Simulated scan of single mutants.
Amino acid sequence: MKKLFIVLAVLSSLCGVAQAQEKVPVLSTQELASDCKLPASPESRSFCVGYTTAIYDTYLATRHPKRAKPFICVKQPAPKRDVVIADFVQFAQANTMLSDKPAAGVFLGFLAERFPCAK
């Protein structure tokens, strides 16, 4: 019984090491811009809208107003979603040095540039 426990412990630790070394693929800016480019298939359009909305919603939900000043301030009435997404695609195409960077961070940077907060 003791030997079985030791064998299971060793196997589980080896599985943990293998999982820790596994590289998790992250969506690149180029991939997101490609999915967001018009005309898009219904699947690409849905993915683009869902992904970009999730990035912004996560920013809103995780920013603590007392500890972290906002850096994205969308004035109301907000522009149409399609306009903002088209602007992001142009931004990504104009900044090719960012194309292999993670899409979420680049999209947040784009939003900060497009919708800066008053100083």
Rank of each mutant, 00 (worst) to 15 (best):
F5I: 15
V7I: 09
V7L: 10
L8Q: 07
A9N: 08
L11A: 08
L11M: 10
L11R: 04
S13Y: 12
L14V: 15
L14S: 11
V17L: 15
A18Y: 13
Q21N: 05
V24M: 10
V24Y: 06
P25I: 05
L27G: 03
T29L: 01
L32A: 01
D35Q: 13
L38W: 07
L38T: 08
E43L: 04
E43N: 04
S44M: 09
F47N: 11
V49M: 04
G50M: 07
G50W: 09
T53A: 14
I55L: 14
Y56S: 02
Y56A: 12
D57K: 15
T58G: 14
Y59P: 02
A61E: 14
T62P: 01
R63M: 10
R63E: 02
R63A: 07
H64D: 15
P65R: 00
P65I: 06
K66L: 12
K69G: 11
C73R: 11
K75N: 08
P79Q: 02
K80W: 12
K80C: 07
R81W: 00
D82T: 15
V84N: 03
A86D: 09
D87G: 06
F88R: 03
F88S: 00
V89W: 08
Q90L: 14
A94R: 14
A94F: 09
N95D: 06
T96F: 01
K101C: 02
P102A: 08
P102C: 01
A104F: 12
A104Q: 02
G105K: 10
F107G: 11
F107S: 00
A112N: 14
E113Q: 13
R114E: 04
P116W: 00
C117I: 07
A118K: 10
A118P: 08
K119F: 04
